[in-house]
Design a protein around this nucleic acid. Structure first.
Length: 293
DNA sequence: TACCAGGAACGGG
DNA sequence: CCCGTTCATGGT
């Protein structure tokens, strides 16, 4: 077993980062409901960054992250948890705005995650008209049903299914996991990816071109595409316009409502500072979702 | 019971 | 292009 520590020299909160509705590819070792406020646990996931799926677990104690794995996971964790982002500089570059400042203050340390692209794509296809805890439950069932098991410290971690593993699933099998009408979307998109059309290929395209390209996947509209760009592909300017944010626009930024998704998104992006607008959006989303105003 | 959840596909205008 | 409707499922 390999074990290491990462010294945090900037604001970071592991629980907020992993349980704020950005990623559905981690799970708590204590089994507590996803979205719990108790952070005293290990968070588990797997990574294929070094080849075959490797289990990883990590926990936070103050300004120290401790991780354990079968591989050296330090670099992977830095990337996947957004530790390379200069959060203080990003906040400083975000225009002054009462709602944004309040959200930053209340949830300071939350980072934008970098999920593996395929898992990010499938999990956000599953997110359509669904609550956070249920989206997380779906991903857990997908892992345990179709993912490759690896044992670590006497326990089994199931890797997120590969495109091939999900493409081989039947729609009925997926419906049995309570995916509902999303089942054929997941299966068909997995087949497209297994066939060679990979989401990470959009890297290098302009933000709006990349969003348009991603909507070619079945079950991916502009909102889900924005989630994949923001939480998997490092387009930090992406602003997913979900029902919460649309409600926020009506209430706080009515002049940004241009009637159509692309135009409204663009207007709000400018209002939130452009390059890192996705950070401000993610703080606002979580702030409102947890009862802030 | 009826309504809703981090929407998207589909069909008609 | 735009708009309304439909699509499973489980919680409240």
């Amino acid at each position: 077993m390999e074990r290491g520590q990462i010294h945090l020299d900037g604001p970071f909160d592991l629980r907020l980062t992993l349980e704020s509705g950005q990623s559905y590819l981690w799970w708590r070792e204590d089994g507590a409901t996803y979205g719990s406020t108790d952070a005293d646990t290990w968070y588990r996931t797997t990574t294929r960054a070094t080849g075959e799926p490797a289990p990883v677990r990590v926990r936070q104690d103050g300004d120290t992250l401790t991780w354990e794995s079968t591989v050296d996971a330090a670099a992977v964790l830095r990337r996947r948890l957004g530790l390379e982002d200069d959060l203080t500089a990003i906040r400083a570059a975000t225009p002054d705005d009462d709602l944004v400042e309040e959200a930053f203050d209340d949830h300071w340390g939350m980072r934008i995650v970098r999920d593996p692209p395929f898992g990010g794509l499938i999990s956000f296809i599953c997110s359509a008209q669904m609550r956070v805890a249920r989206i997380h439950g779906m991903q857990q069932r997908l892992r345990e049903t179709f993912g490759t098991p690896v044992t670590f410290d006497g326990e089994t971690y199931h890797a997120y299914p590969t495109p091939e593993q999900l493409a081989d699933a039947s729609e009925t099998e997926l419906r049995d996991l309570s995916l509902g009408y999303r089942a054929p979307y997941v299966r068909d998109t997995a087949e497209m990816v297994a066939g060679g059309t990979r989401p990470e290929e959009v890297r290098g395209q302009s933000y709006e071109d990349a969003r348009e390209t991603l909507t070619r996947y079945v079950g991916v509209g502009q909102k889900v595409a924005d989630c994949v760009l923001l939480f998997s592909l490092e387009y930090l300017q992406a602003i997913p316009l979900d029902t919460w944010i649309q409600q926020t626009i009506e209430e706080y930024y009515p002049d940004c409502d241009r009637g159509r998704y692309a135009e409204t998104s663009s207007a709000l992006r400018e209002r939130l500072g452009g390059e890192y607008a996705g950070y401000a959006q993610t703080y606002i989303f979580y702030h409102l979702r947890t009862g802030g105003e």
